[in-house]
Write a protein that binds this DNA or RNA. Structure first.
Length: 288
DNA sequence: CTCCAGGGATCAG
DNA sequence: CTGATCCATGGA
């Protein structure tokens, strides 16, 4: 049965900016302020109303539980305070925030983040999205016609390497298998990672093949709300070098060090604003 | 055709 | 420890 949930009294909430800032993959635009989103085992249509302070969430079998979605969209976090603090750091981040002040960092499923960002390495965003859909179709349970839930660890652990390669994940197939194995055997325990000190949580994730510095940071930021991490990919590196170092190539490590000391505990939020700003305006494209 | 993508594992020095 | 090379796949 069709049901509707509404999020009200929203601020710092722009559905386009939230979904298109690179943190989430299973969505597509339906119309101007309306998107289909596949998350939490559901397919929803989310539409931001004209007044911008209300968003309607529609879909089958949503139940009456609004908390699920207000948690997912991080409604409890005070973005006014975050953006005020960050904007005072320097004019560049202030401009990036002004450009994308409706961004929020979603609270996504950690397991889905693990697999999604393993797939993401050395791929373009549309390819990542396609591969994830392939994996869901092959191993997830159907939600509705033609749409499948993200497979659980148990479900995905049944996949053979050949079946995974058929999903076009290429050399990442063994990485996915290793992630399934370590989660299912309890070598990496997702629930425990929330409580662990952030660096220990990261060390745990780094045991999984295919998870390195950047992928681990994405998983921690988007799946575990560890908002002090600053995932540094080729894009954010170029943006930081372009804005803060006059376009000079200072290297990955120095970009990370700079972000950590400059943005401190809010580095993860800063990364989202800078990523969306740099990517949306196509600033600092390839070096040559 | 060549180059590269929200990188990481592996190998060479 | 740092740097080069390889890894599938698809689009520019």
């Amino acid at each position: 049965m069709k049901s509707v949930v509404s999020l009200e009294n929203l601020n710092h909430f722009d559905i386009k900016q939230i979904l298109e800032s690179g943190q989430v993959f299973r969505y597509h635009q339906l119309s101007n302020r309306s998107y289909e989103l596949r998350a939490k085992g559901k397919v929803i249509k989310i539409t931001q109303q004209q007044d911008s302070t209300t968003a309607l969430i529609e879909g089958p079998n949503l139940g009456e539980v609004e908390e699920i979605w207000s948690d997912y969209f991080d409604i409890g976090t005070d973005y006014e305070a975050i953006t005020n603090t960050l904007s005072q750091k320097d004019p560049h981040i202030a401009k990036a925030i002004d450009f994308g002040k409706g961004i929020r960092i979603l609270k996504q499923d950690p397991w889905e983040m693990i697999i999604s960002f393993i797939i993401s390495q050395n791929k373009q965003i549309p390819h990542i999205q396609q591969c994830i859909e392939n994996v869901c179709e092959s191993f997830g349970i159907p939600i509705e016609e033609g749409v499948y839930a993200f497979p659980t660890p148990d479900q995905l652990s049944l996949a053979t390497e050949e079946e995974l390669r058929a999903c076009k994940v290429g050399f990442r197939a063994p990485y996915i298998m290793d992630a399934c194995q370590k989660i299912c055997e309890g070598k990496v325990v997702i629930k425990d990672l929330y409580a662990l000190p952030t660096l220990e949580a990261k060390q745990s994730l780094l045991q999984i093949k295919g998870i390195g510095e950047k992928v681990a940071d994405c998983i921690l930021l988007f799946g575990f709300s560890k908002t002090n991490f600053f995932p540094t990919d080729v894009w954010i590196k170029r943006v930081v070098e372009g804005l803060y170092f006059n376009g000079e190539e200072i290297g990955l490590q120095k970009v990370q060090d700079f972000a950590k000391q400059h943005f401190g505990e809010l580095a993860g939020y800063a990364q989202q604003y800078l990523f969306f700003y740099g990517r949306e305006l196509a600033l600092f494209k390839k070096a040559k």
